[in-house]
Design a protein around this nucleic acid. Structure first.
Lengths: 129, 129
DNA sequence: TTAACGTATGCCCATATCGGCATATACTGT
DNA sequence: ACAGTATATGCCGATATGGGCATACGTTAA
């Protein structure tokens, strides 16, 4: 097997920087392909191909008007990514780090009559070693 | 050119489902390679390779202990993804949609002294709190 | 109808991938 | 030193990629 297709899911689709660039332009409102071509520095066929990928994973939607096609972002398709990445928020947010400290404190006071020295390790679960 | 290297950035690294699976396991606390191999259904060399990719984009960090290597998540490396995806939150969040309605209202009242009755979409209740 | 415009598709190719397997490297215990 | 464990690396093959270019398709204007 090779790498998963870019059209597999939103994760694969947005791995390509130019596709993110397209979404970044589209977030301001819908644009026709030609406008995208001008804004990005890329050939029209390439832009069309990227748009196809984005369409296939539902990250964008199209509206035809005459011979032009206006593309717009379809936000909800990004939610899976949002949800996934949010599971890691505590890993970078100072807010959560502070919260962890507080929780740790409370826990110790609750548990700890005996208060045997605990290393600040994982939280709730009990990882072996 | 072909597709960008998986080690280009976090976006490319997490496009691979198994790498996300590894991170998902690691988020509970550090694990040795062997433990990952057991949990994932994948050969040890493959796991090591995925870990290498994750290491190269700083999504994980290693700690050697004897012949074992304990891997753990390095959250901040995910922040770029978080930041990027958050720019689109209004595109799926009801909360933001509601906010948009309010802002639209305010704008109309500001602009229009004359109170031109545009879309008088009845304010409607806002069950969302 | 014909020409021009806007967009999509097809073909080529160099490239990086991912899994499987064999093997190298590193550390530990006897 | 030697065997055994834990992990990393190298090579292979099948595959999909993304840009460049030509061209097909669909719509509008002359």
């Amino acid at each position: 097997m090779a790498r998963a297709a870019t059209t597999t899911d939103a994760f694969n689709a947005i791995a390509e920087p130019r596709r993110r660039a397209i979404l970044d332009l589209l977030v301001g409102g819908e644009l026709a392909v030609g406008e995208l071509v001008e804004l990005l520095e890329l050939g029209q066929p390439q832009v069309s191909k990227h748009l196809r990928v984005l369409r296939e994973v539902a990250l964008v939607e199209v509206r035809a008007e005459g011979r032009e096609r206006f593309y717009r972002v379809n936000g909800p398709a990004l939610k899976p990514i949002h949800d996934w990445v949010m599971r890691y928020e505590r890993a970078w947010s100072d807010r959560f780090e502070a919260l962890d400290v507080v929780l740790e404190d409370l826990k110790q006071k609750e548990d700890g009559d005996g208060a045997s020295n605990e290393q600040g390790d994982g939280e709730g679960d009990d990882p072996e070693r």
